[in-house]
Design a protein around this nucleic acid. Structure first.
Length: 193
DNA sequence: GTTCTAGAAC
DNA sequence: GTTCTAGAAC
């Protein structure tokens, strides 16, 4: 079958004017019982649709907060609830190293905190951008966001130049000094940890 | 965010 | 010739 006819076959759902933009996907997942891991009045925890490690959850506020850059001092208590849920999740995964943080430049709408294991073993981890999103300063630890919010009442954006340079960071294992030549070599190496 | 694929890198 | 990466997607 040609590529063109493939596109036509799914045109109704993928190309119509009413199709939802991909960046709104988290709002759909938040409502999907199959994605939900746990839920409180203020927060929903879902499984990442394309996990980049053995454990990869997203913690999302029920309130319509578009990103960390919309946070103000009144959201400190929300972030403190995030930490309580993070501690709860850690206690449910006793032998796994979990880290919590935010992407400096998120692609998906609705503020979301990544809770991810440091093994980084997953078929969905494919590109240098994936890797650098979790292993460079592009990944802002939860505690950094909380203290910046407490100290200045908001979270400052990074410059496009810094964004570009972080994404271009040479590959470096997150658990040792190994510097892989390419992604396949990195993925092979991760299996040895 | 993912998919696809041209052309760079090997 | 095959593997791998990076940029377009209307």
């Amino acid at each position: 079958m040609s590529k063109r006819s493939n596109e036509n076959a799914t045109e109704t759902e993928s190309k119509s004017k009413h199709a939802k933009h991909w960046s709104l996907g988290l709002l759909e997942s938040m409502k999907d019982p199959k994605s939900i891991v746990k839920q409180t009045k203020n927060v929903v925890v879902i499984r990442d649709k394309y996990p980049k490690a053995k454990v990869h959850y997203l913690m999302i506020p029920t309130d319509s907060i578009n990103s960390i850059y919309k946070l103000n001092s009144e959201h400190v208590s929300l972030l403190e609830e995030f930490n309580e849920l993070f501690e709860e999740i850690k206690s449910e995964h006793s032998n796994i190293n979990l880290i919590a943080g935010f992407h400096a430049v998120p692609s998906m709408q609705r503020m979301h905190m990544h809770v991810i294991s440091n093994d980084m073993i997953s078929p969905c981890l494919k590109t240098k951008v994936h890797w650098n999103s979790f292993t460079t300063k592009f990944f802002i630890p939860y505690k950094d966001i909380l203290s910046e919010l407490k100290e200045s009442g908001s979270v400052k954006k990074i410059s496009p130049e810094l964004h570009k340079s972080l994404m271009a960071t040479p590959l470096q294992c997150n658990q040792c000094s190994f510097k892989p030549k390419n992604m396949p070599q990195l993925k092979e190496h991760l299996l040895t940890h």
